[in-house]
Amino acid sequence: MHRVCLISVVLLLVFSIGNVSADSSGQKIIAAFFSETHNWIAPPFYSFWDRNGGVRIFGYPLSPPALLHSPEDGHLCVTQDFERQRLEYCPTHPEPYRVVPIRIGVEVLLKQGRNWEDLPKGTPTPGCDFFPETGHTLCEPFRSFWYSHGLDLGMGGRAWVESLALFGYPISEPMVETNAEGATVLTQWFERARFEYHPDNPPQYRVLLGLLGKELYGSYRTGVASVSGIVYVERVARAFVESGLFWDMVHRPDSGVNISKASLSIRGPIYPSDHPLAGVGDSWFNILVDIRPDSTFASPADFVPETPGGVMEIRPGMLEGTCDSGGNAAFFPYSSKQFSVTGRQSLENVIFQTDIVCSDFFP
């Protein structure tokens, strides 16, 4: 094998904050990269996150997805941490409950050494809702916010049960507390959220959700990495085998190749058939990375996603060039190399080997 020097061209299909990956139709957004925390929200979490309130309800992603066993049935599920919540996907659950937020309000209170069942109870009050399930009330300034948000369960409008599915029941009465950011505000705890009232904010931002994810799981852990290495290319031709059953590769080192543009494709993720994301969370990432004149390549820094239990793949990308014999040059399409990445750990010195074929050798 020998290296072939290539003229560089930038052919990156890159994304940035709010940047997204779309399906083959180019219309449906299925993933997004957030530079604030160096993490992707990948399928199946992105559509749920975006449809049910986005940053305001869930916050930015704190980490890449991770695998866990469901405490309910022991089946393998996938989870992703966000600033205000944690989402879990279990393929064995019925729709529309395969992606659900956890009871993070209960968990944060327990971390603080407080059991919500020991908090002072409320009483039925005019103008408020009383929930006998927990013994607490829902009044303004939080009542309107609770009713105006909810999970999209396909019921049309904003059904009461959809708000309940998103936030859960109130598990405290409103009380003045100092949050983790040092602000002393009127606060009410819910099973899946903490409401805070900030009267000095503009009206639409006076009720905010506490950053319970950060309080429970800590600061963000980047879930992306850079990938770099070198490309080794063999100049070959294709010749027809007399049996007519297949094509064979024939080396032709005497014929030169003149390349003007070339790139590699980094794509994935690829999951095994028994993985919980197989069929719903695979093959959404695809970028083209230019091959430099010295035959090296490098992805955008800290951009290739970490995929729990899956792998990414390098394949030939685009190529423009001609052969000395007069034919057009093209990458032989079946070369590939699989790899995995870990956040904050760049993958360097990757060796990718592929072949170039010339059109004049096709019958």
Rank of each mutant, 00 (worst) to 15 (best):
V250C: 02
Y334A: 13
S226C: 08
A225G: 02
S283P: 00
S263W: 07
G310S: 08
S335V: 09
S226L: 02
H251K: 11
H251W: 06
P272Q: 13
F339Y: 11
F246Y: 14
G256W: 12
D282C: 08
V311Q: 08
D302P: 01
G223T: 05
L288N: 14
Y220C: 02
S299L: 06
F240L: 14
G213T: 03
S260G: 03
P300L: 11
V233F: 05
A262Y: 09
M318A: 12
A329E: 02
F331A: 11
V304W: 03
R344T: 11
K261Y: 06
E313K: 12
M318Q: 11
I230L: 04
M249W: 03
L211K: 15
M312H: 04
V224H: 06
P272Y: 10
T222F: 10
C323N: 04
P308K: 03
G223R: 03
V257F: 12
S295G: 02
E242K: 15
L212A: 04
E234Q: 14
K261I: 14
G210S: 10
H251R: 15
S295K: 08
L264F: 05
P308R: 02
V236Y: 00
T307E: 11
R292N: 13
D254Y: 13
S265K: 14
G310I: 07
T307H: 03
G229C: 06
G309M: 12
